[in-house]
Each structure stands twice: as C-alpha cells, then as structure tokens.
Amino acid sequence: MATGGRRGAAAAPLLVAVAALLLGAAGHLYPGEVCPGMDIRNNLTRLHELENCSVIEGHLQILLMFKTRPEDFRDLSFPKLIMITDYLLLFRVYGLESLKDLFPNLTVIRGSRLFFNYALVIFEMVHLKELGLYNLMNITRGSVRIEKNNELCYLATIDWSRILDSVEDNYIVLNKDDNEECGDICPGTAKGKTNCPATVINGQFVERCWTHSHCQKVCPTICKSHGCTAEGLCCHSECLGNCSQPDDPTKCVACRNFYLDGRCVETCPPPYYHFQDWRCVNFSFCQDLHHKCKNSRRQGCHQYVIHNNKCIPECPSGYTMNSSNLLCTPCLGPCPKVCHLLEGEKTIDSVTSAQELRGCTVINGSLIINIRGGNNLAAELEANLGLIEEISGYLKIRRSYALVSLSFFRKLRLIRGETLEIGNYSFYALDNQNLRQLWDWSKHNLTITQGKLFFHYNPKLCLSEIHKMEEVSGTKGRQERNDIALKTNGDQASCENELLKFSYIRTSFDKI
C-alpha cells in the first residue's frame, strides 16, 4: 500500500482533458527560462521544448504516446526543470519506465491550478516501474492521483506527508504495488545497510526511497516546507523545498512566496507586481503582455491589467481597466465587458449561442446573426445582446428569417469595421425574408467608422429604411451602385405612401 494514499474509496472516473512563447529569463536562482504550460502528445517531438525550461508557468501534460519505446527515452533528460506552477499529468506514455532521468531536479509542483483537485496525476502508464522524482520536495496545493499503472512499484516507500501538507485526498490505487509483488529495495538494503531515512506512518517504520538508488530526502521537522541542505541544516524561511546553503534567500532552489532578481522575498516591493503567484514583474512586463494579447485571437491570451499590486489576466467583477495605466478602477454604474472572439468572429444561430455573449459591452471581433427560429426570440436576444455598444469588426445579418427588427441591439452605437466582410463591408444584410426595420432612427444613433453597407434580398425592408441608415451611420456616399439592390429590397412591402385627393359631386333626387 502506498504510504499516505487512500484505498478502496469510491472515486469519480478520471477524465483526461485534452506555445513556446518565453516569458522571460528567471535569473540567477533558476538555471534556465520560464516556459508556458505545455500539452505534449502523440510523439516526442515537442518534448524537446523543455530543454531550457527551469519553470513551467502553467501545467505540463505528457500523454497518448503509443509508439514510443524505452530506448526512445534513454537520452532524454531535462535537468534544468525545477518547478511547475500548476500540475504534472502523465497518461498512456508507452515505453517510459521512470522519471528519474527525465526530470531529475523537479523540486516543486505548486498546484496553482489543479487537474480535478490533483497536482500530480500518473494514470495508465503501462510501462512505468517507478516514479523516480527523487528531488520532489513540495506539492504546495492539491493532491496526488496514481492509478492503474500495472508495473509501478516504489510507492509504499514514499512518505507523501513530507511532500504535501495533507495526504487525506491522495488516491493511489490499482498499481502493481497493490499486489505486494514489488519487493522494493532501498539503497544499501541488499548489503544489509540502512542508507535512507525511515519514518513512521500508520504504525509502520519504513525506509523512504524513490528507487533502488535514490533515497527520499527527509528534512528535520523544524525546517517545515522550506527544505534543508545535504547536511540537514534548514533553508531560509522564504525558500521552498530545498537550498544549497542554509538561511540564505539567494540560495533557495525555489521560493515559498515570490522570486525577485535572484532572491526569494515575502512580497513584491514597489515598483514590482505579483505575477502568477510566484514571481515579481515590473510595469513594462505587464504592459507588454497586455499589448501582445490586445489584437491576438490565441486562446488563453489575456490583456493583463494591474489590481491590488498584482498583474492579473482581467479586472475583477465591479472594476474596469483604465487604459492609460492598466489599473483596475471601480465602475460607475454597470461595468464594461470586452469579449474577445477566439477566431475573430462568432455566429449567433440560437439563443444558446447568444447567451455566451451575455453582459458583453464591447465585441472584439465580428458578429454573424443567422437565426431561423426560436421561442420568445426578441426578448431572449435583447437579454443577451442588448448591452453590446461596440463591435470592432463587422455585423452580418444573414438568412435570419425569424427577425423582424434589429432593435434587440438596443445599445449598439459603434461598428468600427477594423475587419470587413469580403474585404469591403462593415454591415452586411443578406436574404432576411421578414426583416422590416433596422432601428427606430428617431431614437437610435449608430456610427460606422469604416467599410460599406450591403443589402440584398431583404424583400420587406424598404429602401427608405436603408437610406436612413446611410445618413445616420455616416456611410452615405461610400456605397457603390450594386451594394444596395434596388429590386430585391422592399419588393414585397408597401414602401411608397402617396396622399390621394378626392373630389365629389353631391346629387339628390331633384338636383344634379
């Protein structure tokens, strides 16, 4: 039985969820670079991206490699990797027998973001014989899940209580170790020597080791999670996991709180800001991140802002960003909400898709409305799209047979046209069989910064309504002859009103 693990408890099935942008060198404390989270699957090609990484700022997932063999891993080693800020997950990587050479110096898994409450997941690794993470000293947050690894031993010899604050939620089941077939031998045991430290858990006094050649490092209890030197002297209180010299914040392997210019500090002093819960960055760093993602459509890219001495992905609820200094300031009234469309555009074809934009005031991208039916549609669209004030790209209304009016965009005031449909149009209306009105132009103002209007096959939309939009939106004169079809717009509506004058002759039985 794995020490510190839980057996036999019912657990939810383990679901495996399925960018080499360097964020800056980590400095003297770390020998390499800070790398983003990685999802490495199918083959070993991307694994080489770990070569210079000291910190993975995010998670590391290595999974679904069915053609790899043990010899493929023999020359692979990433000794610079010290810390993973989120979680480490391995799933069905064939041929991998140990992690001792792959990650010989991995010391800390912070667990800032977890995989279903777990910071370390080893699942269905069919050839893994031992973990071998002999320098792993601290899992700051989260638990361990090690399950269905039929060859995995050296679990009962690990004292997880020396690595985690609590072992109650560890789930370590259905491994070879369960069948008591392992016969784990710690260093020196074969020669009758006791080389590794022994600890007591559940009444068992057991030597602690990761492999037959690597003991588990056990520091004096007084050192807590700070770690200790090879001689057993406690590291500085700002260290986490390990250090090369005692009581020196510049000799830590990793930091308990924050890293700044080669030393570990309790908090980031001005003019620095907390970033990702582990390091200090200056304003320029946060500003660069903001600008890199301002026009990016890459998933996970955030326009970072500053709030409460932190550089964070977005302002919290009730705050909006001051564009001059990136500071989050309290909103006066309802907060603006910028919604970034991942692929640059979004099609609204149902109430469900409209709900995804609920509360958005600025759309960074283009909207395509293609709704053919739905219950209580006008009210639903207004509830979900009615706060949109600005669209950076274009607005396209296409084959939306259920629409009679666009009044559900009740606050839309600006279409920038930074991206144009077919390279020309910022407003595009095609084949809307029941569209009769755009907006009530006596109450609604709309500016279209650039781009043209396109109207074709809107049989109940009168040309007068379209011409009014040209005047109000500032697009009059931009359109070419064929942009607004004269014969297919309003051709099934009563669009022309003329005053009919009647004269009559009164007659009676005795007068003409």
Score class of each variant (00 low, 15 high):
residue 205 F to K: 07
residue 212 H to V: 07
residue 179 N to D: 05
residue 67 K to T: 02
residue 109 I to D: 00
residue 233 L to D: 14
residue 228 C to A: 01
residue 42 N to I: 00
residue 314 E to C: 06
residue 271 P to E: 10
residue 259 Y to S: 01
residue 194 T to F: 10
residue 35 C to K: 01
residue 185 I to V: 14
residue 156 A to G: 08
residue 265 V to C: 03
residue 220 P to M: 00
residue 170 N to Y: 07
residue 251 K to C: 07
residue 144 V to A: 04
residue 98 S to W: 00
residue 261 D to A: 10
residue 191 K to I: 15
residue 254 A to I: 04
residue 119 A to C: 03
residue 34 V to Y: 07
residue 48 H to W: 00
residue 235 C to Q: 00
residue 53 C to Y: 08
residue 309 N to F: 13
residue 99 L to D: 00
residue 159 D to T: 02
residue 80 K to T: 10
residue 70 P to R: 13
residue 271 P to T: 11
residue 81 L to M: 13
residue 83 M to E: 10
residue 121 V to M: 00
residue 120 L to I: 15
residue 320 T to V: 10
residue 292 K to L: 13
residue 114 L to Q: 04
residue 145 R to N: 01
residue 195 N to Y: 15
residue 156 A to P: 04
residue 334 P to N: 05
residue 83 M to I: 15
residue 201 I to V: 13
residue 317 S to T: 07
residue 91 F to E: 00
residue 192 G to F: 09
residue 271 P to V: 05
residue 242 N to Y: 06
residue 267 T to R: 03
residue 83 M to C: 08
residue 80 K to F: 03
residue 158 I to E: 03
residue 203 G to N: 09
residue 306 I to H: 01
residue 233 L to P: 04
residue 74 R to H: 14
residue 50 L to V: 06
residue 326 L to N: 13
residue 143 S to Q: 13
residue 54 S to G: 03
residue 276 Q to E: 06
residue 57 E to V: 11
residue 315 C to T: 05
residue 48 H to Q: 15
residue 99 L to R: 00
residue 150 N to T: 09
residue 77 S to M: 12
residue 139 I to V: 08
residue 104 P to Y: 00
residue 229 T to Y: 01
residue 80 K to A: 07
residue 117 N to G: 11
residue 228 C to L: 01
residue 61 Q to I: 02
residue 75 D to A: 07
residue 38 M to A: 08
residue 316 P to Q: 04
residue 141 R to Q: 02
residue 243 C to S: 01
residue 322 N to W: 02
residue 155 L to H: 07
residue 156 A to S: 11
residue 28 H to W: 11
residue 214 H to L: 08
residue 236 H to Y: 03
residue 203 G to M: 07
residue 300 G to P: 11
residue 305 V to K: 06
residue 194 T to H: 13
residue 155 L to R: 05
residue 329 T to M: 10
residue 137 M to C: 13
residue 256 R to C: 04
residue 274 H to R: 07
residue 335 C to M: 01
residue 168 E to D: 01
residue 84 I to E: 00
residue 240 L to M: 07
residue 300 G to N: 11
residue 143 S to Y: 06
residue 242 N to P: 07
residue 250 T to N: 13
residue 33 E to Q: 11
residue 184 D to G: 15
residue 278 W to S: 07
residue 280 C to Y: 00
residue 263 R to M: 13
residue 270 P to V: 07
residue 164 L to N: 02
residue 101 D to K: 10
residue 308 N to S: 07
residue 115 F to M: 01
residue 267 T to P: 02
residue 216 Q to P: 01
residue 274 H to T: 15
residue 129 K to W: 02
residue 61 Q to Y: 01
residue 34 V to T: 13
residue 105 N to G: 06
residue 77 S to T: 14
residue 53 C to G: 04
residue 37 G to I: 03
residue 66 F to I: 00
residue 217 K to Y: 09
residue 117 N to I: 00
residue 77 S to R: 12
residue 158 I to R: 03
residue 322 N to Y: 04
residue 36 P to R: 15
residue 290 H to G: 07
residue 38 M to N: 10
residue 273 Y to E: 01
residue 122 I to W: 00
residue 129 K to C: 08
residue 175 N to S: 06
residue 163 I to W: 01
residue 154 Y to L: 02
residue 297 R to L: 08
residue 36 P to D: 03
residue 233 L to S: 12
residue 236 H to R: 02
residue 295 N to D: 06
residue 229 T to Q: 09
residue 192 G to H: 07
residue 277 D to P: 06
residue 191 K to L: 11
residue 110 R to I: 13
residue 282 N to D: 04
residue 162 R to N: 14
residue 274 H to G: 15
residue 97 E to K: 11
residue 190 A to T: 10
residue 40 I to V: 14
residue 224 K to W: 04
residue 275 F to Q: 00
residue 228 C to N: 04
residue 181 E to N: 14
residue 336 P to A: 06
residue 304 Y to W: 15
residue 38 M to F: 01
residue 33 E to G: 14
residue 139 I to A: 01
residue 100 K to A: 12
residue 67 K to A: 06
residue 158 I to V: 07
residue 257 N to L: 03
residue 318 G to H: 05
residue 248 D to V: 05
residue 263 R to A: 10
residue 273 Y to T: 10
residue 127 H to Y: 12
residue 279 R to P: 00
residue 245 Q to K: 10
residue 252 C to L: 00
residue 161 S to V: 05
residue 223 C to V: 01
residue 164 L to A: 08
residue 241 G to E: 03
residue 210 W to E: 05
residue 144 V to I: 15
residue 199 T to R: 07
residue 267 T to A: 12
residue 314 E to I: 00
residue 198 A to C: 11
residue 193 K to S: 06
residue 304 Y to M: 07
residue 300 G to M: 07
residue 144 V to K: 00
residue 320 T to K: 05
residue 70 P to T: 07
residue 110 R to C: 08
residue 266 E to S: 15
residue 296 S to E: 10
residue 239 C to D: 00
residue 44 L to Y: 07
residue 68 T to P: 07
residue 216 Q to F: 05
residue 286 C to V: 06
residue 233 L to K: 11
residue 195 N to W: 14
residue 263 R to C: 06
residue 112 S to P: 00
residue 136 L to F: 11
residue 236 H to Q: 02
residue 72 D to W: 03
residue 109 I to W: 00
residue 160 W to K: 10
residue 197 P to H: 08
residue 318 G to P: 01
residue 269 P to W: 07
residue 297 R to N: 09
residue 81 L to R: 00
residue 308 N to V: 09
residue 38 M to L: 04
residue 90 L to H: 00
residue 132 G to E: 00
residue 163 I to N: 01
residue 237 S to I: 10
residue 211 T to F: 02
residue 38 M to H: 13
residue 138 N to D: 08
residue 196 C to L: 04
residue 166 S to L: 05
residue 242 N to D: 05
residue 128 L to M: 11
residue 134 Y to K: 00
residue 306 I to Q: 03
residue 231 E to P: 06
residue 217 K to Q: 09
residue 45 T to A: 15
residue 53 C to E: 03
residue 329 T to G: 14
residue 118 Y to W: 01
residue 122 I to V: 09
residue 321 M to T: 10
residue 115 F to G: 00
residue 113 R to L: 03
residue 183 G to P: 11
residue 155 L to T: 09
residue 117 N to Y: 06
residue 288 D to I: 12
residue 169 D to G: 13
residue 75 D to F: 12
residue 250 T to A: 11
residue 112 S to Y: 01
residue 62 I to H: 03
residue 43 N to V: 10
residue 201 I to D: 06
residue 86 D to P: 00
residue 135 N to V: 02
residue 178 D to I: 06
residue 279 R to C: 04
residue 319 Y to H: 04
